[in-house]
Amino acid sequence: MKYTLNSYWKVFWKFRSIHAMRTFEYRKNFFFWAVVATMWTLFNIFFYKILYQHTTTVGGWGEYQLYTLVGLYTMFDAIIWSVLSHSMKYYTRDIYSGEFSNLLTKPINTVFLIFTRYNNYNNLPRFVIGVGLTIWSLLQLGAAPTPLSLMLALLAIGLGLIWISAVWLCISTLAFYVEKLDNINEVFPALRRIYSYPASIYTNTLHLVLTTVIPLGLITTLPAETLHGHLSLTSFAWLLVSTLIAVVSAALFFRFSIKRYAGVAN
């Protein structure tokens, strides 16, 4: 009997409801972390505001143009801290503890389980702020994205998320090879700052690399530019190709690494 999309859909929502129940169980916790997340977001935005007290452009981007990018960055951050960082943390933790066996013996795709098992809802406010900031900045700019631009921007965002997930999975899969590396899941959170600014601040080779083979520079810049009405087909092509390569590499590396999985002796 093959698993249908319907089965995966059911499992996905079952996990979401489990975490909703857990959030409700620990609601004080939820409020506290929602406040902390919001605080960080406002702190970040505040920093950009201070920068623009002393300049009119950063990397050639005006204040409101940058806020579009910052809004998108905040949205990405909300997803990273709600979903990816937890999934990857439990993934590496389970590899080290031997509990990964629980996942491997289930008749459902392991990578699907890894990514969908966990999430929290603490970053919902952060996501809302991100969306709000993006829309507000576009209003300030008087920019009205066409339906096509909107679709392309969403496509860019989707590709960005897939690229991030694939790369992060690769990095975390190193847990199969390294005896102990608690902060392996800190690598991506540090890298994400690269796309908290427009790609144009980076120069020469670094700029080239970050807008092509390692498209960290494109994650927020591309959808922001698209929303501003500047379509760059080359950038899109690079993001698409890099994402495909990342996904294929991640799948192969993961499969290869499972073979190394020894679990804990007892």
Binding site: M1, Y3, S7, K10, V11, K14, F15, I18, M21, R22, E25, Y26, G98, E99, S101, N102, T105, K106, P107, I108, N266
Partner: peptide
């Protein structure tokens, strides 16, 4: 068609009633 139960490992969600894990497994095993 098989099940592996290891004495010291667990798959139950710690802060929820066991029935929730049962429902989850129902979905996972279809």
């Amino acid at each position: 068609q098989f099940s592996l139960v290891m004495g010291q490992k667990n798959q139950l969600w710690w802060d929820l009633p066991a029935i929730e894990t049962f429902e989850l497994n129902k979905a996972i095993y279809d």
